[in-house]
Computed example of a mutant assay.
Amino acid sequence: MITQTEATIFLAEQRGCSQTDRFRSFHNFNFGSYQDEHRQPFGCLRVFNDDTLAGETSLKMNIDENTEVILLPLVGAVEYKNSLGETGFVEAGQVQIFSATQGMEYEITNPYSDELVNFLQIWLSGEKEGFTPGLTQTTFDLQQRNQLLSLFSTQSTGYIGKFGGREEGIYEVQSPETHGVFIFVIEGAFEVQNRLLHPRDGLSLQSVEAVEFEALSNDAILLLLEVVF
């Protein structure tokens, strides 16, 4: 691994939490009633929520500025509808990018009667001018192991990968001067830039030209975002 660089670790057990008997959301950054001076947005990455919905439960979200909403199911599938009149399903192995202008809203529903669903909601601030609302949904295959697979490419970019134990990887940052990198471990354990990360831990990095990582367990899954500052 390369020499240690300046970074911020977001430990899973130190995340903010909103919870009812039907819904639970863990927050890596300030969201709703959870406010912490050390959890300000990371560049254009404003929201990174790890959500679980009980059966036949819905969650409605309102957008307060132009935003790229990334919806990434991890377990099960969710039903969605939004201000564009779009409806449908997103399931594990798919990612949805909803380009939402200020004032739009969307709703996520667990379509199952007695199963939990788990998904990530990620909000990236969009451009103030020339921002066009729209919806894109793509599929990825984690059977393509030991490599980072592209999830989306807007102003920012996102990747996901499943790695075997002791498999190593390196990500070359596209714009080190103006971009930062946020890492989130979905499953397993990784060493990233000499930091040990367990499931649902996060790591933010700035002013780095490359990010090196090594999977420390089999079938370990990593999410990597390169975001604009």
Rank of each mutant, 00 (worst) to 15 (best):
I122L: 12
R15P: 01
V228K: 07
V75L: 09
T87L: 12
N30S: 05
T20H: 08
Q14G: 05
A189V: 09
G126A: 03
L116M: 12
I2L: 07
T139P: 07
V228N: 05
S18Q: 12
S125C: 06
S25Q: 07
D219Q: 14
E209W: 11
L45K: 11
N194G: 10
S33K: 10
T67E: 02
E214A: 10
G32H: 03
A77D: 01
H38K: 15
E191A: 08
L225W: 00
Q206K: 14
V95P: 00
Q19M: 08
E65A: 15
I186K: 00
A220C: 13
T154F: 02
E226R: 07
G16E: 00
D51P: 01
M104R: 00
P133M: 06
S18T: 15
L72W: 04
E79V: 04
Q96M: 14
I186V: 13
F190K: 01
Y80K: 04
V227W: 04
G161D: 03
E177A: 07
T3A: 09
V173M: 08
P133V: 04
T57V: 12
T136V: 09
F213G: 03
F29W: 13
V185I: 09
S58I: 02
S153T: 09
Q144F: 03
F163P: 02
V47C: 13
Q4V: 08
F213M: 11
F163Q: 05
N49M: 08
N118V: 03
S156M: 04
V208E: 13
L72C: 09
E79L: 05
G32L: 02
